[in-house]
């Protein structure tokens, strides 16, 4: 890629620079010529992508001084740092990192006179779909048993507060993100894909008809950058992809990899029962659970999201699922 020159000397901050989305966002911005400051807790983190336009600064969204240092002279801030796991040992971490951390970033941006913050939220703030794909103005139909979704919703309320205080913030809401990148606790799609390739993934939940929305990581990054340039202050934009069922997901995987794996359809009731055992395992022994009841309950619902607003207002584009998945598979086959 030829590095663009017109963004030279424009300094932007990316929090969560070692995250699944953050690391690729850093790279894309750097390739566009921006002077990127990447905030991460460990500047020797193996997931960080090195580039001459990226400067990594050791810090934490919970450490206000490190935020001030990293944000100095930045015109824009991309806030992607979050506790995005399904489970963490200390439940309070979800609140601290996702809500207090976001508040810290916004407060710092307000004090330093940053032009715009793009806050990365999630479609999880809407949760399941009752009938038609969810759009931005739709209400949330169910409660918030999942800590990640609850705290990300509370983080959006913080954003609304700071917009009232005069800070320019735009929210983007990616759906289930997949793509080339590290296999982490927060990315279930990578686990399914690599598990299928290796032959260690054996099951399909329920009848496999449950539909979810899958967004390619590059689309999210483009959506974030476009939100910085073209988004309207205080607005939310769903950055989604294609709606695909579990059956469709594994069918595409089979076609693209050419590998035929035997997959067993596991009844939802069995998954729920197993998740309850996992729940107690994590409560009693502090062991990382494979699956939790609140996620088992979610398998009853579809999670479909409508990206129409972003397509119209941000010129957002969706990479077809088969194309994105094929790139993802290539990446894993090259790197394992």
């Amino acid at each position: 890629m030829i590095e663009a020159g017109y963004n030279k000397y424009i300094k932007v901050l990316v929090t969560g620079a070692s995250g699944f989305i953050g690391r690729k966002l850093c790279l894309t911005l750097a390739e566009m010529g921006y002077q990127v400051v990447g905030l991460c807790r460990n500047i020797n983190h193996p997931f960080l992508i090195q580039h001459r336009n990226i400067q990594f600064i050791k810090g934490d969204v919970m450490d206000e001084l490190s935020l001030q240092k990293a944000m100095k002279d930045c015109t824009g801030v991309y806030h992607t740092a979050a506790m995005a796991k399904m489970w963490c040992r200390n439940e309070q971490d979800f609140y601290d990192i996702n809500v207090v951390g976001t508040r810290n970033v916004l407060e710092c941006a307000l004090n330093l006179g940053v032009n715009r913050v793009v806050h990365t939220s999630t479609c999880g703030v809407w949760g399941p779909t009752l009938n038609l794909p969810v759009a931005e103005d739709d209400p949330r139909a169910v409660g918030f048993p999942i800590s990640y979704e609850r705290t990300k919703y509370l983080a959006e309320l913080e954003v609304r507060n700071y917009v009232k205080k005069g800070l320019d913030v735009v929210i983007v809401n990616p759906s289930r993100v997949y793509g080339d990148g590290p296999i982490t606790d927060s990315n279930t799609v990578s686990k399914m894909v690599t598990g299928y390739i290796k032959g260690t993934w054996h099951f399909i939940p329920g009848k496999g008809t449950q539909v979810a929305n899958y967004v390619f990581v590059d689309d999210v990054v483009n959506g974030q950058i476009s939100a910085m340039q073209n988004g309207l202050i205080g607005e939310r934009y769903i950055l989604g992809g294609e709606d695909v069922s579990f059956n469709g997901f594994f069918k595409t995987l089979r076609e693209l990899t050419g590998k035929k794996r035997r997959l067993y359809k596991v009844p939802l009731k069995l998954i729920k029962a197993y998740s309850v055992i996992e729940h107690f395992k994590s409560k009693l022994f502090g062991l990382t659970p494979f699956f939790l009841p609140e996620f088992a309950d979610r398998l009853k619902f579809n999670q479909q999201y409508n990206s129409g607003k972003a397509i119209k207002e941000l010129n957002y584009r969706i990479t077809p699922f088969a194309v994105g998945l094929s790139k993802t598979i290539h990446h894993f086959q090259k790197n394992t």
Partner: peptide, 9 residues
């Protein structure tokens, strides 16, 4: 939302 914070604990 306020209750969500309180009930969180």
């Amino acid at each position: 939302p306020e209750l969500l914070v309180m009930n969180n604990n």
